[in-house]
Amino acid sequence: MSDTTMAPGALPADGVPRRRRRWNASLLVGMVMTGAFLAIALLSLVWTPADPNQVAPRDRLLPAGSAGHLLGTDALGRDVASALMAGAWTSIVVAAGAALIALVLGTISGLAATSNRQYVNETVMRGADILLSMPGVVFALVLAATIGAGVGATIFALSVFFTPSFTRVVRAAALRVLEEDFVTAAALYGRRRLFILARHVVPNIFSVMIVQFTLYFAVGILTEAGLSYLGVGVTRPEVSWGILLKEAQETVGVASPLAIWPGLAIVFAVLGLNILGDGLRDVLDPRLRRRKS
């Protein structure tokens, strides 16, 4: 599990000065990897080689490449490939769900914190600071254990700790836009604040929001897998890569390759999203590339 207080990918992938481009290698690689990840997850909704929860103890621990089981079976004879596919969907539901909630809440609170009223700003930003300064994993752990395991609970736990980062990023970006001449002009023209925020600010910070969402999508996958691994995240019949890894670890002395697959799946998905985030940032938002000549 990575942290929940900051996205490691939130820095430019490559700080090398270069001109803004519409297309770049990061974007391409990231889109292909993420596309494959999404496609597999979507496919799992309509088809998997077998029911990922269908047990067959007589066919347990089959090696990869066995008939009908591309990646073999686990300790109860469940098909590993099917479980990985189902796990991809769980990852998306939980991580993207949490990132989406955080995006909405973070945008609302971040915009609110650009208010002219100082006490609103202070309250929102100090609140975000407090949440950010807490060890996210420890809190998520207690929170997840508190509201019980399951998809909904995990989404809730993650979104609580993602939101403040979004608040900060959105506020910073919004403040920059609010300083722009056309916004000042709109204000002078007598537009109400809400109108200005909706009409001028949000469209202009949208790219920032997308990049932030992508990166926290990745953090969410890592965190969900970590919580599920600890037994406080998703539980069966839902399948999570974290659960698969935990189960695999229990058979370590008997069938070790089982522990390889879920880890590889996580790395693939997270790497793809991080690369995509970098690529998107370069394309969408030149402002985020700091001090580039």
Partner: peptide, 18 residues
């Protein structure tokens, strides 16, 4: 380092222990 960031710490642990 990009790949390293994507590796969950528990997977690294399980692999090392394996």
């Amino acid at each position: 380092s990009q790949v390293g960031i994507a590796i969950p710490v528990f997977w690294a642990g399980v692999l090392l222990s394996l």
